[in-house]
């Protein structure tokens, strides 16, 4: 075996995956996260660092368009696969390294880039006219709710306008987080994502592990004790407190830090059913107001702290909700 092929062999034993997830396709998404964690694979932050584009669940037209654009941005060699449910996840992923190794250049459409929009100008807080850039957040972004696109106008680092668009909600979309066990797991999933955005990756991974253990039918008491320990560490962390306290306080829900503490406390007490929280449509309605005037990293934290499950939008998408 010559050097190049040895290099190639080693190169693709642990591919990086970029996920395009349909709302409600949480089952296969969790299976995917679990597989990558256990096998030492990574989820890519962007197309530039991905070996495979994985479409999870049934993508509608706008989400397919997103996947199409991303697929053209993936550096070659690259593989594209789609997964309908959690059953086939392990098998499909296990074949991935071999598919990457045997990849040969084909006559694909060469690099085509979506042209980024030019900056516009608008009055800023001091009444001066300054640049405004329109930046879409999502639908493919680390720790981001599936099917959500938040289009923001940024002046410098400050959001001056935001608009919610929903993608991928079809007549067949069903929420995944139903029943008592899954409700508890949902809290851990939300905590994992918020901690992930806050950059506390070790703790985020811990939440994912406990979430998967809960879903796999792990004994409640063990998970509860573990979550209790974790909750105490999260509550006591001064760095995390400085990051989350006072962010997006909502009536009845508290600020981002309290929401996170409450999620973990609920799981530790093993009682989640009683607190349903406001419907997602209501949260999406207030979202543009809540993120107004926020800095970009704060926007990310706020969105993660609201635990938005787009699949709970009951009626199919009608061009998205817009609010300003």
């Amino acid at each position: 075996m010559d050097l190049i092929s040895a290099l190639r062999r080693a190169a693709f034993t642990r591919p990086n995956l970029l996920l395009v997830v349909a709302p409600g396709a949480t089952g296969p998404r969790l299976a995917m996260e679990r597989f990558t964690r256990e096998h030492g694979w990574s989820l890519a932050d962007t197309a530039a660092d991905a070996d495979a584009l994985v479409e999870i669940g049934e993508l509608d037209e706008p989400l397919t368009a997103v996947a199409e654009v991303l697929w053209r941005q993936l550096p070659r060699p690259a593989v594209r696969l789609s997964l309908g449910d959690e059953v086939g996840v392990g098998e499909a992923l296990a074949r991935l390294p071999e598919r990457l190794r045997s990849w040969r250049p084909t006559d694909e459409p060469s690099e085509e880039w979506p042209e980024p929009p030019m900056a516009d100008r608008a009055p800023d807080r001091d009444g001066l006219r300054l640049d405004v850039l329109r930046v879409p957040l999502g639908p493919v972004l680390p720790y981001w709710p599936a099917g959500l696109r938040l289009v923001v106008d940024m002046q410098g680092d400050v959001v001056q306008f935001a608009e919610v668009e929903l993608l991928g909600v079809t007549g067949r979309t069903r929420p995944y987080w139903t029943g008592e066990t899954r409700s508890a797991a949902r809290r851990l999933d939300a905590a994992a994502r918020l901690l992930g955005v806050a950059g506390w990756t070790a703790m985020s991974t811990r939440c994912q592990i406990l979430r998967d253990r809960l879903l796999a039918g792990g004994t409640g008491t063990f998970v509860a004790t573990e979550v209790d320990r974790l909750a105490r560490r999260v509550r006591r962390s001064p760095l995390l407190g400085a990051m989350l306290r006072g962010l997006a306080p909502l009536p009845g829900l508290g600020d981002a830090h309290e929401r996170l503490s409450n999620w973990l406390a609920e799981v530790a007490r093993a009682s989640t059913a009683d607190e349903a929280g406001p419907p997602v449509a209501e949260l999406l309605n207030v979202l543009p107001d809540v993120v107004f005037g926020a800095e970009l990293s704060v926007v990310r934290l706020i969105v993660a702290s609201l635990d938005l499950d787009i699949a709970e939008i009951t009626e199919p998408s009608h061009g998205g909700i817009s609010h300003g």
Partner: peptide
């Protein structure tokens, strides 16, 4: 800089 301070002080037709 943030929150309500981010709003344009003199909203003018743009």
């Amino acid at each position: 800089r943030y929150g309500e301070h981010a709003a344009p002080s003199r909203p003018e037709p743009s």
